[in-house]
């Protein structure tokens, strides 16, 4: 196995880069990271819209949530990659398509987490903020959301971990992320599938387990120092 790693490590890490586009593990990390960064603020906005009292806002978001939740990510990926260009005439790259689909799915799931958190907060919190004269937005921002995000942290991390794993679906549309590269390597060496896919599995495990440990540590720190900082940290990460 060492010899295998020794031969292909660079290909595994970055794909054909710099001769070709960035691929491999680097692409997987860049894609997940970008998807998370874009989906967090979008999910927050959609979640707030979902529980807002204005029908013009909450109905479209509710429809979007129900549709996206009921369709497999893979199918949307097919649609986005094969169907949309046929209709619009604009061809998007595999990486861009994957990113858009990931952001769409992520932000919808995050929106549901945010919305559930807001609904679960005692009504008195919002009422007392409003009774002091704070507007709807200020009450959300300073009173409701800091508490919601803190309580929702475990679910949010869950979602982030599943985003990392979902990038592997890019394989289907020929995106040269790390699973695709692993398959390529497997074709090259042919007889060592077990080892190749073991390395791939380990790679995903380290990424995802690392992220959830990080989140666990963050959560513990928040618990020790009550939530004022929690609000700050979450706000920072949301921005």
């Amino acid at each position: 196995m060492l010899e295998l790693i020794d031969t292909y490590w660079l290909y595994f890490l970055v794909g054909q880069y710099p001769e070709g586009p960035l691929g491999g593990l680097a692409l997987t990390i860049v894609l997940s990271g970008a998807a998370l960064l874009l989906a967090m603020p979008l999910g927050l906005l959609l979640g707030v819209a979902r529980v807002s009292p204005w029908r013009a806002l909450n109905v479209p978001v509710a429809v979007l949530v129900h549709v996206v939740r009921a369709v497999p990510l893979l199918l949307v990926l097919f649609w986005a990659y094969f169907f949309l260009p046929a209709v619009t005439g604009v061809k998007t790259s595999q990486a861009a398509t994957m990113l858009i689909v990931l952001v769409l799915f992520d932000s919808i799931y995050l929106a549901e987490i945010v919305a559930a958190g807001i609904r679960a907060l005692p009504k008195g919190q919002f009422e007392s903020a409003r009774s002091l004269g704070l507007g709807y937005g200020a009450a959300l921002r300073h009173v409701v959301l800091p508490q919601t995000l803190r309580h929702g942290l475990p679910s949010i991390v869950n979602q982030l971990v599943s985003t990392i794993k979902a990038t592997s679906l890019g394989y289907i549309i020929g995106l040269s992320e790390v699973s695709f590269i692993a398959t390529q390597i497997n074709t090259l060496v042919f007889t060592r599938a077990v080892e190749v896919y073991l390395v791939l599995a380990l790679t995903y495990f380290i990424l995802c387990f690392g992220l959830s440990r990080l989140a666990f540590l963050l959560e513990r720190r928040l618990q020790r120092r009550p939530a004022a900082q929690a609000a700050g940290i979450m706000k920072a990460s949301v921005r």
Partner: peptide, 16 residues
């Protein structure tokens, strides 16, 4: 509302 103080049965302090 800013000119009317309101005190609730369940306090509703902001826990964070």
């Amino acid at each position: 509302r800013a000119g009317i103080g309101f005190v609730f049965q369940h306090f509703n302090l902001f826990p964070h």
